[in-house]
Computed example of a mutant assay.
Amino acid sequence: MKKFLLLLIAVFSFATEDIEELKKLLQKQNAIIENLKKRVDFLENEHKKKMVEELDLHEHKQETKKNLPNLSLILNSSALYRDISNDLYKNYSIPGFIDTTTADIPYNANKGFNFNYAEFNIHSVVDDLFDADAIFHISQDSIEIAEAYVKTIYQPLKVKIKAGKFKSDFGYINRFHQHRYNFTYIPLIYENFFGPEGLNEKGIGFLNNVEDFTLVGELLQGENEQSFGSTSSFALFNFSLKHKKEFEDFKLLSGISFARGKNDSLKYTDIYGVYLVLKNEALFQGVTWQSEFLYRNKELTSKTLNQSGFYTEFVLKFQENIGAGLRYGAILKNEPDLEENLDKYSAMVFYKPSANSRVRFQYLKDRSKLFNGVKKDIDEFLVELNIAIGTHFHQE
């Protein structure tokens, strides 16, 4: 019995010692686990910080990329033959529209070689509300701001607002720049009513899309000298209703416009316009028929001018990069008692080596001009080269 008790005492002593060792071991393990937890928490926090920093950096890069402007450059030059001297041509007149020595000739002014312009375009998203465009027209003698405006991105009630200096949305062709024309020059009726670069004004415009229709309202300064030219502010407004319908094989675009503003006689000029454009991509590589009619009532101090005219043009693409076209434009009414037999014929062929270059060959028969009071028909042949570098945003 005594031996058994001694054995139990010895076992209990060893067991107690083992328990104490286990407790110490557990304490060490707990300390190690606690340290590991702290290390994991530290690493997780560092990882979260790094992820946040990387996310911020990515967002900053995206924001920087979004705000970086898109740039483009358009170069236009030509070689030209015209059967009249340069000096005489610069003094042409068109009865009821352009007086002698007042003609603006921004393109192809001289026989021989012409560098017509370089057009530098800047487009950028400003923020969540606005984007902005600036278009600079650079000639050999000057740099002009062709357009500079902001547009709203957010469109409550589907209304887009544009403010600054911009080409009016009157009619169809007016909003385009020269390099977007199917022919070298703006149509005769537009040249006579608005000048060779169309109606370009400072002001504010509102555009509202409702299904297939677009409503346009513009409040403009009214500085255009061909039809308006009043020195008072807010002297011109334009209202246009435009329609676009897409069918299986073709597009139909149509619209009406009305512009009213004060002229330099402090009287009112009213201009009405209507257009129709058909585009069929299924015929050949594309066919376009484009026509516009404009009417002007211009009150002067001693008389009222009632004038109208139209143009129509047809363009056929034989291949994606080769095409040809015909245009005819005429003055239909030029009252009171002014020359009415004024018109132009144009024929052209174009070749596009790439999406960024175009060569255009054009013949023009111009029967609209007087020189020293005598009407003279003009024959003109030209080769025009157009080069585009970068992304051209403002007319896409």
Rank of each mutant, 00 (worst) to 15 (best):
E59Q: 02
I135M: 03
K251V: 05
V210R: 08
S168P: 06
R175K: 11
H394N: 15
G164Y: 08
S85W: 05
E211R: 08
K298S: 15
N182M: 09
K251D: 15
K245Y: 13
N224F: 04
K267V: 03
R175G: 07
K251R: 09
A31R: 02
M51H: 12
M51A: 15
N91L: 12
E380R: 13
E44G: 04
K38P: 00
K49L: 10
E218Q: 15
S227L: 02
T102F: 09
F166W: 00
D212C: 05
F371K: 05
T288N: 11
V374C: 05
E211H: 04
Q226H: 13
E191W: 01
N35T: 10
K90R: 08
L326V: 03
H137G: 02
L188E: 04
E218P: 10
E59H: 01
R360F: 02
D99F: 03
A10E: 13
D343F: 15
K151F: 02
Q285F: 07
F371G: 05
A259H: 00
K66Y: 05
E380K: 13
F228C: 04
N35M: 02
L252F: 10
K165S: 10
L5R: 09
N86F: 06
A109C: 02
L8C: 11
E147V: 03
S168V: 04
D133T: 14
L241R: 00
L338P: 00
G96E: 04
I271Y: 10
N70L: 13
Y107T: 13
I256H: 01
K303I: 09
L207W: 06
Y275P: 01
L332G: 01
I19Q: 14
Q178F: 00
K48T: 02
S368L: 08
S257C: 06
E197F: 04
I387K: 02
S77Q: 10
A259E: 05
K158T: 12
P336N: 00
L294I: 10
K279Q: 14
G171D: 09
L22Q: 13
T312C: 06
E380Q: 15
N306Q: 14
T16Q: 13
A109N: 12
N182W: 06
I389W: 12
D56Q: 13
L22T: 11
L57D: 08
T100E: 15
